[in-house]
Design a protein around this nucleic acid. Structure first.
Lengths: 187, 187
DNA sequence: ATAACTCTGTACCTTTCGGTACAGCGAGTC
DNA sequence: GACTCGCTGTACCGAAAGGTACAGAGTTAT
């Protein structure tokens, strides 16, 4: 019964290939090379081919964020959950050295094919953060605005860090957004 | 002597294909289809093939921003130049319906190939905006920070607008960033 | 020991990829 | 009318794309 185990092990590796090259750029030959698996094994685990691999990878990323970020934001003490989010995000994106797979897919022509998964990733993130802020005493409108600003800022920081090959941008952006969430609006 | 004229006419069309599908996804067949030009004409204008097309497109985008945004930020009255930037950006990105070609290339595996052009586009934008703020009376450190925040915020907004197929995100982000540049820091 | 089942390598398929070669068209020039 | 010269369509190329077929190895259960 190693099937499930090994399939699960391969997904993060494939994810890295998609992350690095995008959907179109992630050729099967690159995937087989990186994973060390031949086409035989690959199509055994993912009969649907590249499309299924991408879906599995998106689901994997989504699962991680749901578990580590969204759920805590919805259920835990707001302040603690938000601290956890900052730590988790900085860790996940390797302080700007790693790019967001979902964001990369969104800009690609790939978007339409995985539209639902891509949109859901972002809207649920924003909704969860907004809820945490509201539970922390923020006015709903300001909470919604700031939640959107934070998620969008993280994506922008990743684009810029990658574009300029300067990971410090990411750290500065996180710091800026972080202070902004610490001081509730004056309204 | 129609050569230069027509080549110049084709570049924006090719740009749209790259913007929509990314470098890898923009196949020659899609380009011929969209431009209405056969391979013969295409390789007549761009002997270097896809690579040269991408470089021409990047140069075209860069030229537009240099002329319409960066130069005014450096040379004109700061307030007016910044107002012009907001108008120009909203217009250029069609209020979030259009994606940033340079940002898309940055996330792609394409980045390395065009690294210089991609990095320069962003660093010059940030530098120009920072200069305008400093000339407008901002402390240099705060100006640098806010300039980075604005450029990064625009990129993030484009990612999110595209990801959620909700252009309103872009408008809200622009409004937020705009108010932030209107009130100089307290420090 | 054998049967069943999971996994893997190899060979092969069609389509599309980026790119090339080139003959010819049409609008100017002399 | 002949001659450029800029442009275009067509046919073609080898390589790589994504995907399939399948025999067999390795393990596990009986």
């Amino acid at each position: 019964m190693r099937t499930l185990n090994e399939r699960a092990d391969v997904i993060p590796v494939i994810a890295e290939v998609f992350r690095e090259y995008g959907f179109e750029g992630a050729s099967l030959s690159r995937i087989t090379e990186t994973t060390g698996l031949g086409k035989g094994s690959l199509y055994h685990f993912f009969p649907g081919g590249k499309d299924e691999m991408a879906r599995a990878v998106l689901a994997h990323v989504d699962g991680w964020f749901e578990r580590e970020i969204y759920a805590p934001l919805r259920d835990d003490v707001p302040d603690a959950a938000i601290v956890r989010m900052w730590r988790g995000v900085d860790n996940y994106f390797r302080s700007g050295r790693r790019v967001c797979l979902v964001g990369a897919f969104a800009l690609d022509g790939t978007r339409d094919r995985f539209a639902a998964a891509i949109a859901s990733y972002f809207t649920r993130w924003i909704a969860a953060l907004r809820d945490a802020l509201v539970r922390g005493g923020w006015p709903p409108a300001a909470a919604a605005d700031s939640a959107e600003e934070v998620v969008l800022g993280i994506q922008g920081a990743l684009v810029l860090a990658r574009a300029t090959a300067d990971t410090a941008v990411f750290g500065r952006a996180l710091a800026r957004l972080q202070t902004r969430l610490r001081e509730p609006p004056v309204m």
